[in-house]
Design a protein around this nucleic acid. Structure first.
Length: 358
RNA sequence: GUGGGUGUAGCUCAGCUGGUCAGAGCACCAGAUUGUGGCUCUGGGGGCCGUGGGUUCAAGUCCCAUCAUCCACCCCA
């Protein structure tokens, strides 16, 4: 975590994720006293201290959702579905959705026993870290990327094997609800969340070809977290995605980004004559709800047109000597290249009409 | 925290084994078109070659340090 000492000699840690923040909001604002369930979202910068690499930044941005107050497996499916829908709308393809269930505290006690008895015989084959995990948190051995640990864990008991009756039923219902809305998933027995407050459903979305950090989002159920944070026992389930990784995936999949949108109108002047009128018109147009711009570099008519073309504006309003004398301006449609003269006072009205045609 | 790669124009990069090595494309600006964008052509501006030391007659080019950046390892509550 990104921890440092500030000038007041206080130890400061920058938040690494948003769920705990959402829980605090839920408790501090006493949302648990209101109607349940409570659905929240957040977005903002998060921080880590790891060395940066592809898809991993010291400062990054997450979007996340949390649902407090319901243990209904349909909500797990709803949260997963919402996140998959988000990726789908962006245009991402070939994502893998991995799901698993780590059960409740009771299930994990069973799992812990089973795993320890399984790995006790293979203890010497485990990597250094997993030898420590054996006592501290054997579930994490399943998650280890070392080949020796993967090999020795081939027939290891899985979290799902150790689910109690109600947790097993919960997982079945999550899967059923996923099937009801046709969301394909892969059951990944190695997908675990190590902390005690995680319960039942765990899931993760992976994007191919974005480097070593392939996860673009994930989440799960945390029925113990609110209580751990000092609140009443409250079920919760949530999801978070890393926006930089989503952008990376969009980039790799060559999904077209929404282009930058230019102003609606660009006001072109010829020489100094039309300049004052153009400035006034600029603000009239803005007041009428258009985004509008003009030249501020004393550029030639041609250069202004060129600039307007590059900026992708739809309409150019040309005010020159001839137009001024007649109290009109030339309005040019940059797409059709057609232009007509419009009375100066009527330009906003005219453009409003033209804009609604498109 | 560990290992490796890369720092040259706004961007992407080329610059062999030190000696016309300050370059290309794109972008930008201007002109061709004296009041009309996109296409084309012509011209132009712009670089302490990341920074600081060192080696050498001579350093983008070699060495050291430093900073930045990228990739991977580690880690991922």
């Amino acid at each position: 975590m990104y921890t440092f000492t500030d000038r007041g000699d206080r130890s400061i840690t920058l938040r690494p994720e948003g769920t705990a923040c959402a829980v605090r909001a839920y408790l501090e604002d006493k949302l648990h006293a209101g109607p349940q369930p409570v659905k929240l979202y957040y977005t903002g910068p998060m921080f880590r201290y790891d060395r940066p690499q592809a898809g991993r930044f010291r400062q990054f941005h997450q979007f996340g959702i949390e649902v407090f107050g319901s243990n209904d497996p349909a909500v797990d499916a709803e949260v997963i579905a919402m996140s998959m829908d988000f990726y789908g709308r962006l245009g991402l393809k070939n994502l893998e959705l991995h799901i698993n269930s780590v059960g409740c505290v009771k299930c994990r006690l069973v799992l812990r026993r089973e795993l320890q008895s399984f790995f006790r015989k293979r203890y010497d084959d485990l990597c250094f870290n997993c030898k420590n995990r054996f006592e501290k948190n054997p579930m994490r051995i399943l998650d280890c990327k070392e080949t020796q640990c993967i090999d020795s864990g081939v027939n290891a008991p899985t979290p799902i094997d150790c689910l109690c009756e109600s947790c097993s039923a919960h997982f079945e219902k999550v899967k059923k609800h996923m099937d009801l809305i046709n969301i394909p998933y892969i059951i990944n027995h190695r997908l675990v969340r190590g902390l005690d407050y995680y319960t039942n459903t765990a899931f993760e979305m992976m994007a191919p070809d974005i480097g070593a950090q392939s996860s673009i989002g994930g989440g799960g159920r945390y029925n113990g977290l609110v209580e751990t944070c000092g609140g009443p026992p409250t079920p919760g389930v949530g999801f978070a995605l890393g926006m930089e990784r989503v952008i990376l995936a969009l980039d790799r999949q060559r999904v077209a980004f929404p282009g930058t949108v230019g102003p609606d109108v660009f006001v072109v002047t010829v020489g100094q004559v039309g300049s004052d009128e153009a400035f006034k018109l600029l603000f009239k147009l803005r007041a009428a709800g258009f985004s509008a711009n003009k030249d501020f570099l004393n550029r030639s008519l041609k250069a202004q047109m060129k600039y307007a073309g590059k900026a992708g504006v739809r309409f150019v309003v040309i005010i020159g000597e001839e137009e001024l004398a007649r109290g009109v301006a030339m309005v040019r449609d940059m797409v059709t290249a057609k232009q007509e003269s419009v009375i100066l006072d009527q330009i906003a009205v005219y453009l409003t009409k033209r804009k609604s045609e498109v």
